[in-house]
Simulated scan of single mutants.
Amino acid sequence: MNATDRTPADLLRSALAADPGRPLVTFYDDATGERVELSVATFANWVAKTANLLQGDLGAEPGDRLALLLPAHWQTAVWLLAAASVGVVVEVGGDPAGADLVVSGPDTLDAAAACPGERVALALRPLGGRFPQPPAGFMDYAVEVPGQGDRFAPFVPVGADDAGLVVDGEELSYGALVERARGEGDGSRVLSGLGYDTWAGLSAGLFAPLATGGSVVLCRHLDQLSEAGLAQRVDAERVTRVV
């Protein structure tokens, strides 16, 4: 990655320029058997589409607060980078009632309904599938995102000093986030079973690999995998570090 990269969006642009075809996020859900692999190019395309949805259809602006009620999932990683591309502050597990918009999985819809602003729901089904019946009062992400543009340009440039992420009770600017992630990554192919509700999980499961030219095998419901199954996955995915 370039030393001049100062925001998560910068990191993604550099990764795309360096090697668009390499794997960036490989996702497993051991409760469903799902496996999804996203190259840098595919991940960046999802980010661009989601950022266009966020900025265009949802009218989000820099400094707006987004309550993120999602587990560790490849689509959560997309939302984190999309919000950073627009300049929206992500509050991990934030209070929907005090947020400008909320992004929720299927298990937190009741809490998310307290948001007075825009509400987006993700079914988190295999292959990014939609809800069989859209939740009342929510936009179904899987319905709306495919038609969005493949290129994104923010209306307002996002700076390193802008607030970017609230996690573990701490607010990080984009620049602080990038520097912290750089210090915690080493270019490894990391297997992470940590949730996205803490900085440790976000760093290992997305930001540190992105900041240091690595990649992540992100595992949900990893406790349902046997020790032999985990060893097989580590070998098959050429994992160099497990957290």
Rank of each mutant, 00 (worst) to 15 (best):
T7L: 03
A9L: 00
L11K: 08
L11P: 04
L12Q: 13
R13G: 09
R13D: 15
S14E: 13
G21V: 01
R22S: 14
P23Q: 05
T26P: 06
E34D: 06
E37C: 03
L38M: 10
S39E: 00
T42P: 00
F43V: 05
A44Q: 04
A44L: 04
N45A: 06
N52S: 13
N52Y: 01
N52E: 11
D57Y: 01
L58C: 09
E61A: 12
P62V: 12
R65V: 13
P71N: 03
T76D: 11
L80H: 00
L81C: 13
L81G: 00
S85W: 08
S85R: 13
V88L: 04
V90Y: 00
D95R: 09
G98D: 06
G98P: 09
V103D: 03
S104G: 12
D107V: 02
L109E: 01
D110T: 14
D110G: 05
A112C: 04
A113F: 06
A114F: 12
C115W: 05
C115D: 08
R119A: 12
A121K: 00
A123K: 04
L127T: 02
G128F: 06
P132S: 11
P132I: 13
Q133T: 13
P134L: 07
P134G: 01
D140A: 15
Y141E: 05
E144M: 12
G149S: 14
D150A: 12
A153E: 15
P154N: 07
P154V: 07
V156H: 11
V158D: 07
V166N: 03
V166R: 09
S173G: 06
G175P: 04
G175T: 12
L177F: 04
L177H: 05
V178M: 06
V178A: 10
E184D: 03
D186W: 12
G187P: 11
G187L: 04
V190M: 11
T198W: 00
W199E: 11
G201A: 02
L202V: 08
L202T: 02
L202D: 01
S203C: 14
F207S: 02
F207R: 03
L210W: 10
T212P: 11
G213R: 08
S215N: 02
V216C: 05
V217M: 03
C219T: 14
Q224S: 11
L225G: 00
L225A: 15
A228H: 13
A231K: 07
A231Y: 01
Q232E: 15
R233S: 03
V234S: 04
A236M: 06
E237L: 05
V239R: 05
